[in-house]
């Protein structure tokens, strides 16, 4: 099984709200002292791929479309034991729109060659757009299943389990297939071993330019053909918390319970 896992590098979403700033001009978050990290759902996707490879064998290629910094995401993927790493250099728009991203990833995947399965995170922790998987499937002309948290080899095709609003569904699918991965208790990303981290530093990374994968680099660099961010701001919150008071815990909980009843009765 040839598996391609697409990884997105994002500003660490754990940055506390008090340190979060917006650059109104560039219409994006100010990086400040925050680290760049691999989007958590992409890591869930890689973990799911690693577990699938343990069952079925095959090769995992980690694919990143990012500026040079994207190398860090690929080194980590290699340390988690992906087999190969491909970086498509984004030398232009800082946050290309989702169709541009899907278009680039599809071109890179065609360049990589044969694949059975493409795995992406369900959405990213920065813009949270949630479209890469679906658009990529359309660009590649293959089916797509979203919110997947487990894959197994069945008798005729893959058996794919995915989460729904109130439970789950199991699907049988032919390959090639695109899946978007969501988290569950079993695909929490593994921590790479120190030895594997050291080894990953020496492993080769294939670097491709936009020209090399045959996309119209100028239009990707320009961005905004699909949609455009016209404004971004930090919402103002005006809530003050009233902490319940009382001489004893009993009194405080009593106050708390009364507030609950007050609110629920007004609904």
């Amino acid at each position: 099984m040839n598996i391609i896992v697409c990884l997105k590098q994002i500003l660490d979403p754990e940055v506390p709200a008090r340190d979060f700033r917006i650059d109104a001009e560039k219409k994006e978050a100010v990086r400040g002292t925050a680290n760049l990290v691999t989007n958590i759902f992409c890591e869930n996707a890689l973990e799911t791929a690693l577990q699938l490879r343990e069952k079925t064998g095959g090769r995992i290629t980690a694919l990143v479309f990012a500026p040079e910094s994207g190398e860090d995401a690929l080194r980590k993927a290699l340390a988690m034991k992906a087999d190969e790493a491909v970086l498509v250099i984004n030398d232009g728009h800082p946050h290309p729109d989702p169709l541009a991203v899907a278009h680039v990833l599809a071109a890179a995947i065609s360049k990589i060659g044969v694949f059975d399965l493409v795995m992406v995170g369900r959405e990213s922790g920065d813009w949270g757009v949630g479209q890469t998987g679906g658009l990529l499937a359309e660009e590649l002309g293959v089916p797509c299943i979203s919110f997947v948290d487990n894959l197994e080899n069945g008798t005729d095709g893959l058996i794919v389990t995915r989460q729904t609003d109130n439970g789950w569904e199991k699907a049988r699918s032919t390959t090639p297939l695109v899946v978007t991965i969501t988290n569950n208790e079993y695909n929490v990303p593994r921590i790479p071993k120190t030895r594997d981290i050291m080894m990953s530093a020496r492993q080769p990374i294939t670097r491709l330019t936009l020209d090399e994968i045959g996309v119209d680099a100028a239009s990707i660099r320009a961005g905004g053909n699909y949609y455009e961010i016209v404004d971004i701001s930090i919402p103002v919150k005006e809530v003050t918390c009233e902490f319940v008071t009382g001489d004893s815990l009993d009194e405080r909980v009593d106050q708390f319970a009364k507030r609950i009843i007050e609110v629920t009765q007004a609904l």
Binding site: F20, G125, Y227, D231
Partner: peptide
């Protein structure tokens, strides 16, 4: 058509204009 949605894990709100 423009859409407002929360971004950066709810730390910001963006307005997006659909181009197609």
């Amino acid at each position: 058509i423009r859409v407002r949605r929360s971004v950066y894990g709810g730390k910001a709100v963006a307005t997006i204009e659909l181009k197609r």
